[in-house]
Design a protein around this nucleic acid. Sequence first.
DNA 1: CGGACGATTCTCT
DNA 2: GAGAATCGTCCGG
Length: 199
Amino acid sequence: MEPLPSEFFKKPTLVLAKELLGCLLVKETSEGTAAGYIVETEAYMGPEDRAAHSFENRRTKRTEIMFGEAGFVYTYAMHTHTLVNVVSGPVGKPEAILIRAVEPFHGLELMKERRNTENLKNLTDGPGKLTKALGITMEDYGHPFTLPPLYIASGKSPEDISIGPRIGIDNAGEARDYPWRFWITDNSFVSRNRKKPVK
DNA sequence: CGGACGATTCTCT
DNA sequence: GAGAATCGTCCGG
């Protein structure tokens, strides 16, 4: 599991969101290393995307990292959970890709312990679940995905990719229906809150 | 400085 | 499928 180079992240956000599928998300801690295949992503497209934190270029302490270079970690808190994004797009364009689900690959026992469950299916099939399982926290904010302790490595190529509207943004007006959610077709670790694919 | 609000999850029913 | 938990962030006053 070798980190991918920074060049990997320098491509259009909607392209990167698809290419991240099948890649490994790896987190090293003092407790050990945990990793999973990325099976579900969502793109957030900045100023013109009502669902994005950076809508209308809203630049705050929280969104600051989105305005920087692609390939950095954007974590934020949602209720009691931490969610993790990959910063994307050129400098000055605040785009990001939310990692919504991974398929457990390495460090199974550690992940089960952190999630307090033996049920593999329930381990990492949601954005808040996978951060807990992997040990991703707000401490990771602003770090590069190209170096340990939190990095992305090449994995396996998905056979087929499904596309549909994003989850949990029903109040985002017209952006609600944009087909910016990507997942590996028929993968059982995709988050349950699923809608029908448009493709 | 207060109030509203989630890119969620879990626990029931 | 609905409702609670629960808290940092953000914006208005």
